[in-house]
Simulated assay, not measured.
Amino acid sequence: MTDFAARRTMMVDTQVRPSDVTKFPIIDAMLRVPRENFVPAAQREAAYMGENLELGEGRVILEPRTLAKMLDALDVSNDELVLDVGAGMGYSSAVIAHVAEAVVAVEDDETMASEAQESLAEAGVDNVILHVGPLAEGASQHGPYDVMLVQGGITELPLTLQDQIKDGGRVACLFMQGALGEVRIGHKNGGVISWRMSFNAGAPVLAGFGKEHVFEL
């Protein structure tokens, strides 16, 4: 029988800690959340690999290192409301829920959303609200948010989502240029988001998060 707890510890010791993630609440969350319960059944054995896990339809569960470094750079505190865009089967939301006050998880795939709901309940995570709807529209009725994360690649962040971040809030996005990507952390002040590069990573660009093509003569 697979010892997932041992694999979880190894994931933290070989992928998370060496990536300069030092905040205890993040490390603790990643040691506690059973990642194998938040992935497709056929992928359970690969749950702790240091790479993105395919969900199909161009969707992935971001590799543990990427999620941990995003959270570390965002410095989420336990009195903050977080919007998790593209929550998939709920792993990222379960981890964030350990470090935030509450999480609103947006997922457009109803099957994945219901599986996420089930897995979150089984894991005893009770501070996540699942919102089923288009990822690019977020969940304005529960906002505005102190912090936002997007679980996939983007080339630009839709204005609808930018508007749901509180003034003084932060956002982590993985900007893709071809096959190369970098996670940038945005700080919103005076209604404007200023970005700074944080670290390199990669993921497929989410539908609705690419640049609009403008035809020029």
Rank of each mutant, 00 (worst) to 15 (best):
Tyr91Val: 10
Lys69Tyr: 11
Tyr48His: 15
Asn78Asp: 13
Met49Arg: 09
Ala73Val: 14
Ser77Asp: 02
Leu74Arg: 01
Ser92Ile: 09
Pro64Lys: 03
Leu81Glu: 11
Arg59His: 12
Asp84Ala: 03
Met49Gly: 13
Val60Ala: 03
Ser93Ala: 13
Thr66Met: 01
Ser92Glu: 06
Tyr91Leu: 09
Glu54Cys: 11
Ser92Asp: 14
Gly58Trp: 06
Arg44Lys: 13
Gln43Thr: 11
Leu67Gln: 04
Leu67Lys: 01
Asp84Phe: 00
Leu67Glu: 02
Glu54Gln: 09
Met49Phe: 14
Gly90Trp: 01
Tyr48Asp: 10
Arg44Trp: 05
Leu53Ile: 09
Asp84Gly: 03
Ala46Phe: 15
Leu83Tyr: 07
Glu63Phe: 14
Asp84Cys: 03
Leu62Ser: 09
Leu67Phe: 04
Glu63Ile: 10
Met70Ala: 15
Ser77Ile: 02
Leu55Cys: 12
Glu54Lys: 08
Met70Ile: 14
Ile61Ser: 06
Met49Lys: 11
Leu53Val: 08
Gly90His: 05
Leu53His: 01
Thr66Lys: 00
Glu63His: 08
Leu67Gly: 01
Met89Lys: 00
Gly88Trp: 05
Ala68Lys: 02
Gly56Leu: 04
Ile61Trp: 01
Ser92Cys: 12
Ala87Asn: 01
Ala68His: 07
Leu53Asn: 01
Leu55Met: 14
Arg44Val: 12
Leu74Gln: 01
Ser92Arg: 04
Gly88Ile: 07
Leu71Asn: 03
Leu55His: 04
Leu67Tyr: 03
Ala46Glu: 15
Ser92Ala: 14
Ile61Leu: 10
Leu83Asn: 03
Ala68Cys: 09
